[in-house]
Write a protein that binds this DNA or RNA. Structure first.
Lengths: 212, 212
DNA sequence: GTCTATATATTGATAGAC
DNA sequence: GTCTATCAATATATAGAC
């Protein structure tokens, strides 16, 4: 999702102008630069040197903030996760009908955003090679799924019929279709119209009622 | 998809034992090694040295077969593409009902296969950074979609009702859900049961009939 | 066509001045 | 905390013997 990638001041925002605030600024600037470089080059090909240059600091300064390239990447992913959760909770709060229209916009925004889809793919690949990070990412997906569940439950109650998928499975399909359509749209924009996600989800919901 | 990654003898298979056959063997062996190393390390972190060592040849020998790391990667992706097309056409030939059950198996096989999903993600990321390769990959997806279309058309005719999605959109959703579920299953196997793809597609088809 | 040896550049990370 | 300078390791790619 097109996450604004906002900084996360740990334990309260330090007063502007203070030494702690300056440190926070470089810290956040490094994460911004990391997002740009990791997205452009990929994790493997990205170099800490270029990240430092992009952030406008020296190589050595990076190691005063992070243990190394890996730690920097993990910190970046952490920041994106909390931003994505905030974003999701804000947009899902109003119930499913309003959310459906919103989700369409999130598909296109995520696909058309320069870095979001790229970094998500980098994160998934990193997770495939680092079991610990994989567990973190899976837990994050679980939380997203959990946030989706109340809306699905309410919709099922509203329609008052038995479904051929469990609520959790519906949430999984919704999440899977989301990332799948984002990647397809990114590859060939014309093949994924802006409202396809919403229409597909509606058809799915209509078809879930078991037929006898 | 769990593509066997078979060699592609250009212009007919050379006689076994001939010099051309020996060349073909190393060529194919290099592609096999490339598949293993690119999947394990990722494109950026993979080194031609390790690929050579895995294939049991020297670094210099790689450059007698390929122009470099990039060319090797592209050749590998090319081989996987023709194998995937063969595979898809073979399994889709019998019509949709038989294909549906088969598709379920393809989701689990692709997700559980060691390299297929990894290399697919690497290919997508590479495509995001190389427009030419991106066009190739998009064209490949288009061919897959085209192969899916007859089955969808037949199913719509069988059900004899208007649909809220075009046939092409249904194909896109089917492809998108496929890759999305594969990635989710790879991350958290329990969240994606083996038959979820088929059940979701069935529900989608049931719900496509417009309601008035 | 395959090998060994090597040229050249870049990498992640560290040391020490300020 | 940020800098400059530098380390050792590794990268891609090439040259030349066989």
């Amino acid at each position: 999702m097109p996450v604004p990638d906002e900084p996360t001041p740990p334990g309260g925002t330090p007063r502007a102008g203070s030494r702690a605030a300056a440190r926070e600024r470089t810290h956040a600037g490094l994460l911004d630069a990391a997002a740009a470089v990791f997205a452009e080059k990929g994790y493997g090909a990205a170099s800490v040197g270029e990240i430092a240059r992009t952030a406008g600091v020296s190589v050595g300064s990076i190691y005063a903030h992070f243990a190394g390239k890996q730690d920097l990447f993990l910190a970046l992913m952490d920041r994106r996760r909390v931003a994505e959760m905030d974003d999701a909770r804000r947009h899902l709060a109003d119930g499913l009908p309003s959310a459906l229209h919103d989700l369409d916009h999130r598909v296109t925004a995520t696909a058309d955003d320069g870095r979001a889809a790229l970094l998500a793919a980098e994160a998934w690949l990193y997770a495939m090679r680092d079991p610990d990070f994989g567990a973190d990412l899976a837990a994050h997906q679980d939380r997203l799924r959990a946030d989706l569940l109340p809306l699905i439950r309410a919709e099922r109650a509203r329609r008052g019929a038995a479904w051929s998928l469990t609520d959790e499975e519906v949430a999984t399909v919704a999440l899977g279709l989301f990332s799948g359509l984002v990647q397809h749209r990114r590859l060939a924009r014309d093949s994924v119209p802006a409202d396809l996600y919403g229409r597909a989800l509606l058809a799915l919901l209509d078809g879930l009622a078991t037929r006898d």
